[in-house]
C-alpha cells in the first residue's frame, strides 16, 4: 500500500492504521521507518515533487519482492511543503519473523533513496531550492548526453 499526502504526515494516525490493518494477520514483526525533517542549515522545511506513475511501478516491484518473502510493505510520503520536525516519509515492513523485516526495510529504504521519482527542495528565505547536492542520479542516467 502506497499513499501520498499533501503536507506533513500524521505519524500517529498512519502507524495506528497500519498496525490495526495487520493486527490479526499473524505477522510476528512490524518494523517501521519514520523520516523527520531536521532543523539544519537554516531551512524552514522541505518540499517535494513526486511523479506518481513511475513511483507506483517502482513500489509494485517492491511489493512483489516482499511477497516472495511472505512479507508486506507499506509506504506513505508527503507532496508539497513539510515543516521542521514534521514527518515526510514512513515505510514499514510486516513479516512472519523479525530478521526478514529488518533486512528488507534496509534494502527498501536504500533503493527508495536511489530510485523513487521524488525531488526534494529546501525551503529557505521564502525560496524553494532544489537539493541537487543531496540527490542521486537514477541508474542509467545520462542516456541522452
Amino acid at each position: 500500500m502506497l499513499k501520498i499526502y499533501n503536507g506533513g504526515l500524521n505519524v500517529a494516525d498512519i502507524l495506528k492504521a497500519w498496525y490495526e490493518e495487520e493486527s490479526l494477520s499473524n505477522y510476528g514483526a512490524f518494523i517501521p521507518f519514520i523520516g523527520t525533517i531536521r532543523d539544519e542549515d537554516g531551512i524552514d522545511g522541505l518540499s517535494f515533487d513526486i511523479y506518481e506513475p513511475i513511483l507506483e511501478k517502482w513500489f509494485k516491484e517492491w511489493q512483489e519482492k516482499a511477497k516472495a518473502k511472505n512479507a508486506i510493505i507499506k509506504m506513505a510520503h508527503s507532496r508539497g511543503d513539510v515543516l521542521l520536525h514534521q514527518s515526510s516519509y514512513i515505510a514499514a515492513v510486516f513479516s512472519p519473523k523479525r530478521r526478514v523485516a529488518l533486512e528488507f526495510i534496509d534494502e527498501f529504504v536504500e533503493d527508495f533513496k536511489a530510485s523513487a521519482p521524488i525531488w526534494k527542495y529546501d525551503l529557505k528565505n521564502g525560496q524553494r531550492i532544489y537539493a541537487l547536492d543531496r540527490s542521486t542520479a537514477i541508474k542509467g542516467s545520462g542516456l541522452l548526453a
Binding site: I54, S88, K113, S115, W119, R134, S135, S141
Partner: peptide, 9 residues
C-alpha cells in the same frame, strides 16, 4: 519523461 536526480524521504 526526463527524470533528474532524486531524493525522497
Amino acid at each position: 519523461s526526463m527524470l533528474p536526480p532524486v531524493c525522497g524521504g
